[in-house]
Protein backbone atom coordinates (compact mmCIF):
# COMPACT_ATOMS: atom_id res chain seq x y z
CA UNK A 1 0.00 0.00 0.00
CA UNK A 2 1.31 3.42 -0.94
CA UNK A 3 2.26 5.61 1.98
CA UNK A 4 1.07 9.13 2.67
CA UNK A 5 3.82 11.74 2.31
CA UNK A 6 3.97 14.06 5.32
CA UNK A 7 6.10 17.13 6.03
CA UNK A 8 6.25 18.25 9.64
CA UNK A 9 8.54 20.10 12.03
CA UNK A 10 9.74 17.88 14.83
CA UNK A 11 11.75 19.43 17.64
CA UNK A 12 12.54 22.34 15.33
CA UNK A 13 13.78 20.20 12.45
CA UNK A 14 11.99 19.81 9.12
CA UNK A 15 11.13 16.16 8.68
CA UNK A 16 9.54 14.27 5.81
CA UNK A 17 8.17 10.77 6.09
CA UNK A 18 5.82 8.29 4.47
CA UNK A 19 3.21 6.62 6.66
CA UNK A 20 0.20 4.37 6.32
CA UNK A 21 -3.26 5.85 6.94
CA UNK A 22 -3.75 3.75 10.07
CA UNK A 23 -0.39 4.57 11.63
CA UNK A 24 -0.44 6.75 14.72
CA UNK A 25 1.90 9.68 15.26
CA UNK A 26 3.43 7.58 18.06
CA UNK A 27 4.16 4.75 15.58
CA UNK A 28 5.75 7.25 13.21
CA UNK A 29 7.90 8.84 15.92
CA UNK A 30 9.06 5.51 17.31
CA UNK A 31 9.24 3.19 14.31
CA UNK A 32 9.92 5.51 11.38
CA UNK A 33 11.88 8.38 12.92
CA UNK A 34 13.69 6.52 15.70
CA UNK A 35 12.40 8.89 18.38
CA UNK A 36 11.62 6.33 21.08
CA UNK A 37 11.39 8.83 23.95
CA UNK A 38 7.58 8.81 23.74
CA UNK A 39 6.35 5.45 25.08
CA UNK A 40 3.30 3.32 24.38
CA UNK A 41 1.82 2.34 27.73
CA UNK A 42 -1.74 1.69 26.58
CA UNK A 43 -2.43 2.83 23.02
CA UNK A 44 -5.80 4.19 24.11
CA UNK A 45 -4.97 7.63 25.46
CA UNK A 46 -5.29 6.61 29.11
CA UNK A 47 -1.69 6.67 30.42
CA UNK A 48 -0.06 9.75 28.87
CA UNK A 49 3.32 8.05 28.36
CA UNK A 50 3.19 9.07 24.68
CA UNK A 51 2.48 12.76 25.40
CA UNK A 52 3.83 15.25 22.83
CA UNK A 53 3.04 18.87 22.12
CA UNK A 54 1.35 19.38 18.75
CA UNK A 55 1.17 23.07 17.79
CA UNK A 56 1.14 24.19 21.44
CA UNK A 57 -1.43 21.59 22.43
CA UNK A 58 -0.69 18.64 24.68
CA UNK A 59 -1.83 15.42 23.00
CA UNK A 60 -1.46 11.67 23.36
CA UNK A 61 0.46 10.81 20.20
CA UNK A 62 -1.21 7.37 20.20
CA UNK A 63 -4.51 9.14 19.49
CA UNK A 64 -3.17 11.26 16.61
CA UNK A 65 -2.59 9.82 13.16
CA UNK A 66 0.84 10.22 11.63
CA UNK A 67 -0.79 11.85 8.61
CA UNK A 68 -2.39 14.51 10.82
CA UNK A 69 1.00 16.01 11.60
CA UNK A 70 1.22 17.42 8.05
CA UNK A 71 2.43 21.01 8.24
CA UNK A 72 2.43 21.03 12.04
CA UNK A 73 4.98 21.37 14.83
CA UNK A 74 5.66 18.43 17.12
CA UNK A 75 7.68 18.68 20.35
CA UNK A 76 8.91 15.50 22.04
CA UNK A 77 11.09 14.84 25.06
CA UNK A 78 14.11 14.56 22.77
CA UNK A 79 13.78 18.28 22.04
CA UNK A 80 13.61 19.54 25.61
CA UNK A 81 17.30 19.96 26.39
CA UNK A 82 19.44 22.58 24.64
CA UNK A 83 22.63 20.80 23.66
CA UNK A 84 24.02 19.42 26.89
CA UNK A 85 21.99 21.82 29.02
CA UNK A 86 18.95 20.14 30.49
CA UNK A 87 15.59 21.89 30.69
CA UNK A 88 14.87 22.97 34.31
CA UNK A 89 12.13 20.34 34.53
CA UNK A 90 14.59 17.61 33.49
CA UNK A 91 17.12 18.88 36.04
CA UNK A 92 14.55 19.04 38.84
CA UNK A 93 13.19 15.57 38.05
CA UNK A 94 16.73 14.28 38.57
CA UNK A 95 17.39 16.26 41.75
CA UNK A 96 14.09 15.25 43.36
CA UNK A 97 14.31 11.61 42.20
CA UNK A 98 10.94 12.15 40.54
CA UNK A 99 11.42 8.93 38.60
CA UNK A 100 12.00 5.36 39.61
CA UNK A 101 11.59 3.17 36.54
CA UNK A 102 11.40 6.24 34.30
CA UNK A 103 8.99 4.90 31.66
CA UNK A 104 6.40 7.61 32.39
CA UNK A 105 9.02 10.36 32.70
CA UNK A 106 9.07 11.60 29.07
CA UNK A 107 5.29 11.98 29.15
CA UNK A 108 5.35 13.76 32.51
CA UNK A 109 8.09 16.14 31.37
CA UNK A 110 6.14 17.09 28.24
CA UNK A 111 2.88 17.47 30.17
CA UNK A 112 4.61 19.55 32.85
CA UNK A 113 6.27 21.73 30.20
CA UNK A 114 2.86 22.37 28.65
CA UNK A 115 1.36 23.09 32.07
CA UNK A 116 4.03 25.62 33.02
CA UNK A 117 3.83 27.30 29.62
CA UNK A 118 0.14 27.97 30.28
CA UNK A 119 0.35 28.49 34.03
CA UNK A 120 3.85 29.51 35.19
CA UNK A 121 2.84 29.67 38.86
CA UNK A 122 0.56 26.71 39.54
CA UNK A 123 -0.71 25.69 42.97
CA UNK A 124 -0.15 22.10 44.12
CA UNK A 125 -3.74 21.34 43.20
CA UNK A 126 -3.31 22.82 39.73
CA UNK A 127 -0.20 20.70 39.21
CA UNK A 128 -2.03 17.58 40.39
CA UNK A 129 -4.97 18.16 38.07
CA UNK A 130 -2.71 19.34 35.26
CA UNK A 131 -0.78 16.08 35.37
CA UNK A 132 -3.77 13.81 36.03
CA UNK A 133 -3.63 12.50 32.46
CA UNK A 134 -0.27 10.86 33.08
CA UNK A 135 0.00 7.61 34.99
CA UNK A 136 2.97 6.79 37.20
CA UNK A 137 2.95 3.49 39.09
CA UNK A 138 6.26 3.86 40.96
CA UNK A 139 6.44 7.17 42.80
CA UNK A 140 3.02 7.96 44.25
CA UNK A 141 3.49 11.34 42.47
CA UNK A 142 4.88 13.10 45.58
CA UNK A 143 8.35 13.73 44.16
CA UNK A 144 6.98 14.53 40.70
CA UNK A 145 4.80 17.31 42.13
CA UNK A 146 7.72 18.67 44.14
CA UNK A 147 10.01 18.62 41.09
CA UNK A 148 7.45 20.57 39.04
CA UNK A 149 6.99 23.09 41.88
CA UNK A 150 10.74 23.56 42.12
CA UNK A 151 11.15 23.87 38.34
CA UNK A 152 8.37 26.48 38.23
CA UNK A 153 10.26 28.53 40.82
CA UNK A 154 13.51 28.29 38.84
CA UNK A 155 11.81 29.13 35.54
CA UNK A 156 10.07 32.18 37.01
CA UNK A 157 13.43 33.50 38.17
CA UNK A 158 15.06 32.90 34.79
Amino acid sequence: MAGIAVSATINGDSVEYLCQPDETLLDVLRDRLGLTGAKEGCGTGDCGACSVILDNRLVCSCLVLGAEAEGRRVETVEGMAHGDKLHPLQQKFLEHAALQCGICTPGFLIAAKDLLAKNPDPTEEEIRFGLAGNLCRCTGYDKIVRAVQDAATVMKGA
Binding site: E78, L94, L99, P106
Partner: peptide, 21 residues
Amino acid sequence: TRPIRPDGVDKVTGRARYGAD
Protein backbone atom coordinates in the same frame (compact mmCIF):
# COMPACT_ATOMS: atom_id res chain seq x y z
CA THR B 1 23.80 10.91 50.73
CA ARG B 2 21.43 11.70 47.88
CA PRO B 3 23.32 12.05 44.59
CA ILE B 4 21.74 12.00 41.12
CA ARG B 5 21.39 8.49 39.73
CA PRO B 6 23.81 7.36 37.00
CA ASP B 7 21.01 6.42 34.58
CA GLY B 8 19.12 9.64 35.27
CA VAL B 9 20.05 11.85 32.31
CA ASP B 10 19.23 9.11 29.81
CA LYS B 11 15.81 8.74 31.41
CA VAL B 12 14.89 12.44 31.31
CA THR B 13 16.11 12.92 27.74
CA GLY B 14 14.33 9.92 26.20
CA ARG B 15 17.61 8.17 25.46
CA ALA B 16 17.13 5.24 27.86
CA ARG B 17 16.14 2.09 26.02
CA TYR B 18 13.27 0.05 27.42
CA GLY B 19 11.87 -3.25 26.17
CA ALA B 20 10.13 -1.86 23.10
CA ASP B 21 12.85 0.69 22.25
